[in-house]
Amino acid sequence: MQIFPCPFCGPRNETEFHFAGELGKVRPDTGKEVNARDWATYLYAQRNEKGLVREVWLHLTCSELFVMERDSLTMDVRASKSLRGDAL
């Protein structure tokens, strides 16, 4: 069982966490015309990197979203921090 660190609750069991998505996706500005290609990129395209990744995770028990940096090959967790402030 892997332990993930929640920036608010500390180290907790991995089953308490839910993968929300890759960090850095920006929803298209719907105030302007958005073409189908840009929508598809936003909705579906993934970097899906092998190695170091930065992702948004949800800690189900405290309902907080946060950023986790980890290695998708070794599964080492490097850092976790709040989405507030300058995390992006």
Partner: peptide, 13 residues
């Protein structure tokens, strides 16, 4: 598994 991964190995949950 619930965690995106390239690690070709099993895990407990």
């Amino acid at each position: 598994d619930r965690v995106p991964s390239y690690g070709q190995r099993g895990n407990l949950p």
